Amino acid sequence: MATKLPTSAHTGRPWRIHEIAGDFRVEDVWAFRTPGAGPGDFAAMLAAMRAAGGPARQTAPVRFLFAVRWKLGALLGWDTPEAGTGGRVDSLRRRMPADLREAPQGPDDPDMPLKPLYELDDEAARELANKTVHTVMHLSWVAAGDGDHELRMAVLVKPNGTFGRLYMAGIAPFRHLLVYPALTRQWERAWREFGPAGPEAKPAGSTGRVPAGAVARAVGSRVPPRLRALSSMPDFDYADAFSLATDSAERTPEQWARAMFGDVPGPGERLIWRGLLGLRLDYRRGPDTVAGWRVAARGEDWIRLETASWFLTGNLVVRTAEGRVTLVTFLRYDRLLGRIVWPPLSAVHRGLVPGVLRGAAAKSR
Score class of each variant (00 low, 15 high):
Glu193Ala: 12
Glu193Cys: 04
Phe194Cys: 06
Pro196Gln: 09
Ala197Leu: 13
Ala197Tyr: 00
Gly198Asn: 10
Pro199Leu: 01
Glu200Thr: 01
Ala201Gln: 15
Lys202Ser: 14
Lys202Asn: 07
Pro203Gly: 14
Pro203Ala: 13
Ala204Cys: 08
Ser206Gly: 06
Thr207Phe: 09
Thr207Asp: 13
Arg209Glu: 15
Pro211His: 11
Ala212Thr: 15
Gly213Arg: 00
Gly213His: 04
Ala214Arg: 13
Val215Leu: 08
Ala216Asp: 02
Arg217Gly: 11
Ala218Lys: 05
Val219Arg: 08
Gly220Asn: 14
Val223Thr: 12
Pro224Thr: 03
Pro224Tyr: 12
Pro225His: 03
Leu227Asp: 15
Leu227Pro: 02
Leu227Asn: 07
Arg228Ala: 14
Ala229Arg: 07
Leu230Gln: 09
Leu230Phe: 04
Ser232Leu: 13
Met233Ile: 01
Pro234Met: 07
Asp235Arg: 12
Tyr238Asn: 01
Tyr238Arg: 06
Tyr238Glu: 06
Tyr238Asp: 07
Ala239Met: 02
Ala239His: 02
Ala241Thr: 04
Phe242Ala: 02
Phe242Glu: 02
Ser243Thr: 08
Asp247Met: 07
Ala249Tyr: 01
Ala249Asp: 12
Ala249Ser: 13
Glu250Trp: 10
Arg251Ser: 10
Thr252Lys: 03
Pro253Arg: 09
Trp256Tyr: 13
Trp256Val: 01
Arg258Trp: 03
Met260Gln: 05
